[in-house]
Design a protein around this nucleic acid. Structure first.
Lengths: 96, 96
DNA sequence: GCAGTATATCGATCCATGTCAATATCGGCC
DNA sequence: GGCCGATATTGACATGGATCGATATACTGC
């Protein structure tokens, strides 16, 4: 799949039930340990790691170490990218 | 892919370069004839028809006949669904 | 250094989907 | 009815990606 369009990359990253669930959990708090996702999504640990990598490479998530754990949070420009995508789709949506 | 979550279905429908291009063109006008997409997206006519079907079944587009042509437009509740998805992701976005 | 825990990578498999060529269906017109 | 242009469907193929088990890497504490 030709992935030149960054908006397509963003949508592709979110268009998976496991990944959308991860992003929703993170968007409700500041940062979440990777270990907290393994339990709630009914998939194995390597699969969670794979999805976290996809979200990181798509620029949706940012990660930082804290001891043994790795904390994931929303990427700083995620809200702006989402707002830009929203504007290009309908022109009805604003950041408030 | 377990497609129970309607938000995942919406994102999946938009997460394709051809389909996102189609939706962007439609969102810029009221309704567009299906024949207008065949030229600009560098894919064959059956492929365009397939993508239009995917968007229709995902509730993104609505279609109506006008003689030989079929006109596609954004589904009436698309903006609302998008706004709801936006709210569940960041809580920062409002319909204006 | 060693053991244990947390996370990532690798290799393989299976399923979904994007694509096209060929064909079918539908609406209009003669 | 018969033809033609527009759109949809079918069948087949190739590719991508989601998943898992096994393994590797990284950090901590002893």
């Amino acid at each position: 799949m030709r992935n030149a369009d960054p908006d397509v990359s963003l949508l592709t990253a979110l268009a998976d039930p496991v990944r959308l669930s991860i992003v929703r959990q993170i968007s409700g708090s500041d940062a979440i340990c990777a270990c907290d996702f393994t339990e709630c999504c009914d998939v194995s640990q390597p699969t969670i790691s794979h999805h976290l990598r996809v979200l990181r490479e798509a620029g949706v998530l940012a990660s930082r170490r804290q001891g043994t754990n790795i904390l994931y949070s929303l990427a700083p420009d995620f809200a702006a990218r989402w707002a830009g995508l929203s504007a290009s789709l309908s022109g009805l949506v604003q950041v408030g």
